[in-house]
Computed example of a mutant assay.
Amino acid sequence: MINLYFVRHAHSTYTPDELSRPLSARGFADATKVTELLTTEKIDIVVSSPYKRAVQTVEGIADCIGKKVEIIDGFKERTLTTEPAEDFTLAITKVWEDYNFSWEGGESNFIAQKRGVEATYNVLEKYKDKNVVIGTHGNIMVLIMNFFDKRYDFSFWKNLEMPDIYKLTFEDDELISVNRLWEKL
């Protein structure tokens, strides 16, 4: 058995620089709550998307267990478009309606999901019988969850919080259960 704790990053201060966008003051406060919640889960390993806001959300639990955050590129957010979308709602709806569709320079759901699932399988293989925190992003997290269980879809994504935490329990490569852990404290 392996438990993967997918942590959608806390609120960030918007900048067009995806890689180094930091958490906001509210995001840092919520990241502290994420750390408090995860300290009760006997975490062994912490991995994250390379994006600063994802790392900042989970680095507190890494500090608590005396480990460094391992960066895994496959957990970065999906690229929607090369330029910011004029109508984000339209842009995101279109890619969820057609898994093979992509905007110019962006990833289709199928391509982003494939990347995220490969990263997930690598973690499952590398960290058997461990509790692993994964700092990530809403869209890629739900695409990964959707691969294992189709209930996790666009409607589910639209109702995520920021941050949010889902514990996925696997036996080998088979998803056994999903439990939401995040509650506003």
Rank of each mutant, 00 (worst) to 15 (best):
A29V: 01
A29F: 04
D30M: 09
D30W: 06
D30K: 13
T32I: 14
T32G: 14
T32K: 13
K33L: 14
K33S: 11
K33I: 11
K33Q: 14
V34W: 05
V34Q: 04
T35A: 09
E36A: 13
L37N: 01
L37P: 00
L37M: 08
L37W: 06
L37Y: 03
L38Y: 02
L38N: 04
L38W: 00
L38H: 02
L38K: 00
T39E: 12
T39D: 03
T39M: 12
T39I: 07
T40F: 10
T40P: 02
T40S: 15
T40D: 14
E41Q: 14
E41M: 06
E41I: 03
E41Y: 05
E41C: 07
K42I: 01
K42C: 03
K42Y: 05
K42F: 05
K42G: 02
K42H: 14
I43S: 00
I43C: 05
I43G: 03
I43M: 04
I43L: 01
I43K: 05
I43W: 01
D44T: 06
D44L: 03
I45F: 01
I45K: 10
I45N: 06
I45D: 06
V46T: 03
V46K: 01
V46H: 02
V46R: 01
V47D: 08
V47M: 08
V47L: 11
V47C: 12
V47N: 07
S48I: 09
S48P: 11
S48E: 06
S48H: 08
S48D: 08
S49E: 12
P50T: 10
P50A: 13
P50L: 09
P50N: 13
P50D: 12
Y51G: 09
Y51V: 05
Y51C: 06
Y51S: 08
Y51E: 10
K52A: 15
K52G: 05
K52Q: 15
K52Y: 08
R53G: 13
R53W: 09
R53T: 12
A54F: 10
A54S: 15
A54G: 10
A54I: 09
A54C: 13
V55C: 12
V55T: 10
V55H: 12
V55G: 10
V55A: 11
V55F: 12
V55I: 15
Q56K: 12
Q56F: 05
Q56C: 08
Q56P: 06
Q56S: 13
Q56W: 08
T57H: 02
T57Y: 04
T57F: 03
T57G: 07
V58L: 00
V58F: 00
V58I: 06
V58R: 00
E59S: 10
E59Q: 12
G60W: 00
G60S: 04
G60H: 03
G60Y: 00
G60T: 07
I61D: 03
